[in-house]
Each structure stands twice: as structure tokens, then as C-alpha cells.
């Protein structure tokens, strides 16, 4: 379970990127965070995977307080999370296989296991024919799927995706979110930051609406 208690974040005075966020996300939930540009979606996601620390408040994941966790345990925590960045952050001098294999290499799995898992994951995102290609030779949507494959290859408990469908056409965007839904049905908690309201409506999941750093609503949007 992910819990946020009175979380505030300030990058620069007097503006607050996050203001008094209180939130609970149950294990296995599928949640969209939405809101206009600059509303704090990315900041909220970054505080959850502890890329940044909140100015005030507490964040607790599965009973572990992120603000009190010693540095050497942050690595273990991050291994339980899969992150899809808005800009993908792919390694362009490495093949698709190498990009997806990174989280598995970090934990030192044997090469054979890594190969099997990477291939399996790439098949899930329908990219296995391009396993030896370099990201620069892939389309935008394919690069996005490489980033998703990297986030899920380690079978994380929590998946955080920041605008994973940005700049994609509606059909491809639907396909990508469907992929997250499949992963969610396998047991992972999925949190997606997106400003695409139409897409969010199509999936009818719980939506957190951010407005100028404040949580405006936290409700399901089932039609």
C-alpha cells in the first residue's frame, strides 16, 4: 500500500509544487493522476519513487517510511518499482535487449535467465522481432514500449508511468495503457500520470485530479 500524509513540496519560494497531499493507494490498484501541465503530476510521481524528497509530510510504502529509510535501502526499494519516464531515458548506444536487461543486470541474475525474461517481456509488448535493434532505429511508439518493457521486466510490485502516452495517436495510446492494465491484472499496482482525459475516461479507473499542486478529487470515473 502507498500512503501519503500531508505531503508538501517546494522547489522555489513562494510556490508549492505539492500542497498538503493526503492519499492512499491500495495494493493492486490502477490509478491515473491527471491535471493540467504544471499541476504537480511529475513531482508527485518523483516523490513516490524517491527521486526527490518532500519538503514536509510522510510517504509510506508497504509500511516503510521513505523519509526515514537509510540510503542503502533505497536501492532495494527501487528494485520493487518499475518506472516509465516521460522522455523514456533509453540508452541509444545499446540494443533493445541491453536496455531492457538493465534492471536484471543490477540484481546480478544469470545471463540465461536475463535472456529468457527479456525475450518474454519484449514478446508481451510485441517488440521481440526488434530485440537486437538500436533504439534510434525504432519509432516513437516502439521506443515507448521498450521503456515499458524495462519497467516491467523485473516484475515490480509498483509501476509508475509519467505521461507514457504523450505524443502518441489515440489508438497507440489505448494499446499502451491496455498493456499496463494487463500488467495490473497480474498483481502490480499501477500509477499513471497523464493529461489525456479522453484516454482516462476509456479505462474508467480511479483518477486523482491535481490542480496547482492540490489534490482536487480522488474518485473513480466509471461511466
Amino acid at each position: 500500500m502507498i500512503e501519503l500524509f500531508h505531503v508538501w513540496k517546494q522547489y522555489q519560494k513562494p510556490f508549492w509544487a505539492l500542497s498538503d497531499i493526503n492519499l492512499q493507494i491500495e495494493k493492486g490498484d490502477f490509478v491515473f493522476i491527471t491535471g493540467p501541465s504544471g499541476s504537480g503530476k511529475t513531482t508527485l510521481l518523483k516523490t513516490i519513487f524517491r527521486e526527490i524528497l518532500p519538503t514536509e509530510g510522510q510517504i509510506v510504502i508497504d509500511g516503510v517510511n521513505l523519509l526515514k529509510i537509510p540510503d542503502h535501502r533505497i536501492f532495494a526499494l527501487r528494485r520493487q518499482m518499475g518506472i516509465v519516464f516521460q522522455d523514456f531515458r533509453l540508452l541509444f548506444h545499446r540494443t533493445v535487449f541491453d536496455n531492457v536487461a538493465v534492471p536484471l543486470q543490477v540484481i546480478g541474475l544469470p545471463r540465461k535467465v536475463i535472456r529468457r525474461r527479456v525475450f518474454h517481456t519484449l514478446r508481451q509488448v510485441n517488440l521481440h522481432p526488434k530485440i537486437n535493434d538500436f533504439p534510434s532505429r525504432l519509432s516513437y511508439g516502439e521506443q515507448q514500449r521498450v521503456a515499458i518493457a524495462r519497467a516491467v521486466v523485473n516484475r515490480p510490485k509498483i509501476i509508475l508511468a509519467d505521461e507514457p502516452t504523450g505524443n502518441l495517436d489515440p489508438e497507440l495510446a489505448f494499446e499502451i495503457v491496455s498493456l499496463f492494465k494487463e500488467i495490473n491484472e497480474q498483481g502490480a499496482t499501477v500509477i499513471i500520470g497523464s493529461h489525456d482525459r479522453e484516454l482516462i475516461k476509456r479505462f474508467g479507473q480511479r483518477v486523482l485530479f491535481l490542480q496547482k499542486g492540490r489534490l482536487a478529487t480522488s474518485q473513480p470515473t466509471r461511466d
Binding site: F49, L77, R78, R89, P103, V106
Partner: peptide, 12 residues
């Protein structure tokens, strides 16, 4: 970039 990714996927 690679270092950043390694950090975020749990590389010590």
C-alpha cells in the same frame, strides 16, 4: 544518462 537509469532501477 546510464548512471541515472542505473540509480533509478535500484543499482547501488
Amino acid at each position: 544518462n546510464e548512471i541515472e537509469i542505473l540509480r533509478l532501477v535500484g543499482g547501488t
